[in-house]
Design a protein around this nucleic acid. Structure first.
Lengths: 345, 345
DNA sequence: CTGAAAGCGCTTACAG
DNA sequence: CTGAAAGCGCTTACAG
């Protein structure tokens, strides 16, 4: 049924050490031996026992990917990119989610160590920076989206929101908007506050001092609640920048319910371009974050980090980009000319 | 840094065998010994080496979850339910996706075996039934959504679409629809053809013989293409049942682009109630598949299967349910009363 | 280029 | 209730 290396060795008339060497593609093995061993391997459909192997060499063929919640559509394409890249190089992915739960987060770090992952990409800021050292001490490479200093075994991937934001601000300004507001992500979230800062700064420079600047969870209903507060102000804004597409969706829904017309009364700008965001009506203008690419780059960064152990990590930057979706009316006209369905993503 | 069981044993002044027994909660250990050992474990922050453990006992603390594609929103809540349930019982999840690629699918099965998962839930029909035996031969429990006979180590989870479909058919019939059409999922997909059959049968029984009955991939653009063919017929249907929400979305988009009004010209019914489907405008009526529950049940089924090894598996059935979303017009009225008017378009 | 042997860190009959 | 020892299936200096 399940064969061992010894059985292969016997069949090939060599020692198990030789079989091991052949399978690990060590040099200095005669072509003849390789051939005999591989024939035996083939014949028995032999596969090495990974547990024994991991025990012997002290590491696994696993890479960790830590996210906060699997149901957040923001992550799915990152996972896909990371997994595909890992797969290409023959590695498996241990997917761990913190669910924003502290206890669970601790356990996640333990799992990573226990499973002797070679490296881990941390795609959530719900993991404290302090765990990075815990991991690198165990010789585990780390790639994080948090803005920490690069170090031995630590690289960072940064999403440059500025470019997309600047494009977006320029766009709304050129449309004549004069009063802007901001609904940023959660106050405690680092990425959220980076985006917020960039937004506020950018708007000010363009003479669009945003008011108010509020916060919201990354959930649709929170976005809805947040927008209601904004509407009650006397000098209501004509454009609202939202910290994520989910917040933007909530805002759109709440505006609809309040009898406002989007975008003619109030324009909404989101961030992320999450899957299916193109289906939202009224059309959602948003800033695209290239997620599959983020996943791929994260793995590539880890791979490089582990290959060049002597050096320290690097900083990778991924750019964002404004996506202008047509208003319903424009779209209808557009569609008539195109008479073609839109792509899935 | 990383301690071994021997070090713990030394500190507790017992043998490593005893430490092992304490950690495995074997009975027949004196309370005193347990205390001493646990104190030593605590002091050293000791954790067992999982690789050594897996090698020694021949199995892992992993369960496999096989899906077809991570970016399909249909799966994310299943993953979540499964992972949460596994986590509760102290197990980890190895998430594997076939990406509909044959080679990759083979590799997935290998991975499951190599990692000595205790059980696996197969939530995709892109895995042949024949692999089930391959897995059970290795003593790996299998839960599948495919309609195979239950067996030793094999349980099935079935989604009962009939209930939701019957409700949906009754609903559209009561609204006065007389001409129905069907855009089923891919012809080669087993689930798709089960749904198709149930639909066609149910419609006929209600005197709504569907015409045409076509097929489409589970993608938005495919749905759009499919609906165009239907529209070109002379006796165009007034209601179209779609094999998934994604297909339904594509249909809605294509109808919009063709200048049709949904639902006053044509009604659309989807299946799944995927995340954020409530955001679609015009509102999408759909049949809800309780996905997180599916994930939880799948794990529970595996857990039970492995506990009662002597017996054979069981068949679990999960019911679906019609979700009626308000049409734009209805919504308008509804909203007016609520002092929150504003239809989507 | 290849083999004998020690070692990776656990678990578990066996014996007491 | 507890320990000595064999065994799980690999890898890798060491020696040749």
């Amino acid at each position: 049924m399940t064969h061992t290396m010894n059985e292969v060795a016997k069949l090939a008339k060599v020692s198990s050490a030789t079989v091991s060497r052949v399978l690990s593609k060590s040099p200095y093995i005669s072509a003849k031996t390789v051939e005999r061993v591989m024939a035996a391997v083939e014949k028995l459909s032999y596969r090495r026992n990974v547990h024994a192997r991991r025990l012997a060499i002290g590491k696994s063929d696993l890479f960790g990917l830590v996210i906060s919640e699997i149901t957040n559509p923001f992550f799915s394409e990152i996972i896909r990119g990371f997994q595909a890249a890992a797969w290409d190089r023959g590695f498996d992915v241990l997917l761990l989610n913190t669910e924003y739960d502290e206890k669970r987060t601790e356990a996640v770090v333990q799992k990573l160590i226990e499973n002797s992952v070679r490296g881990v990409a941390i795609v959530t800021s719900s993991l404290e920076d302090s765990v990075i050292a815990t991991l690198t001490d165990k010789n585990i490479g780390v790639v994080t989206f948090n803005p920490v200093p690069v170090d031995r075994l630590v690289s960072t991937v940064t999403i440059d929101y500025k470019r997309g934001l600047t494009q977006a601000i320029e766009h709304v300004a050129s449309l004549g908007h004069r009063r802007a507001a901001v609904i940023a992500g959660p106050q405690t979230n680092r990425t959220a506050s980076i985006i917020k800062q960039a937004l506020v700064e950018g708007l000010r420079q363009r003479g669009l001092d945003p008011d108010p600047v509020t916060h919201s969870d990354y959930h649709v209903d929170a976005g809805a609640t947040a927008v209601q507060a904004i509407l009650s102000a006397k000098d209501a804004p004509t454009v609202i920048f939202c910290g994520s597409d989910l917040i933007a969706m909530g805002a759109i829904l709440a505006l609809e319910e309040a009898g406002m017309n989007v975008p003619s009364d109030v324009s909404i700008v989101g961030i992320d371009d999450i899957p299916f965001s193109f289906l939202i009506r009224p059309a959602l203008t948003t800033i695209r974050v290239p997620r599959e690419e983020l996943g791929k780059i994260s793995f590539a960064a880890l791979d490089k980090l582990l290959k060049l152990k002597r050096q320290r990590g690097a900083e990778y930057v991924v750019e964002t980009e404004l996506v202008i979706r047509k208003s319903a009316a424009q779209e209808r006209k557009f569609a008539l000319r195109q008479k073609a369905p839109r792509p899935a993503r």
